[in-house]
Amino acid sequence: MRSLPEQISELDRVIHEPARLAILTVLAGCDEADFTYLLRVTGLTNGNLSTHLSRLADAKLVAIHKQFVRKRPQTVASLTELGRSQIERHWRQLKELRKQASAVHREKVRETL
């Protein structure tokens, strides 16, 4: 069985950044969402969201589609197949880590008692 630090080092840094993890989690709950909704639900600023979306698109985890709706720009983002499998894997890894960390914590408490 791998140690906790080993497992932590295996986490994907692109996904594990909290803002990007929030964006990917939202997109995992739908087929696609636009920029305004992602702003509202994550609470990020316009610039931050734009930067993080570009980073995720560069990693091929998110597909971005731009269009005009009633003369206003609309940016729609959706998860790629790779993104969908990676985010599920990432949440599984985090759950496993949490389980192990709490087991270690319980062990330490028992030792001190």
Partner: peptide
């Protein structure tokens, strides 16, 4: 800031599913 915390997975999912 939102960047400082790990996002609440269940909240984000349930809001998005409800909104959709």
């Amino acid at each position: 800031t939102p960047e400082a915390n790990e996002p609440d997975r269940e909240r984000l999912r349930s809001v998005t599913i409800t909104y959709a």
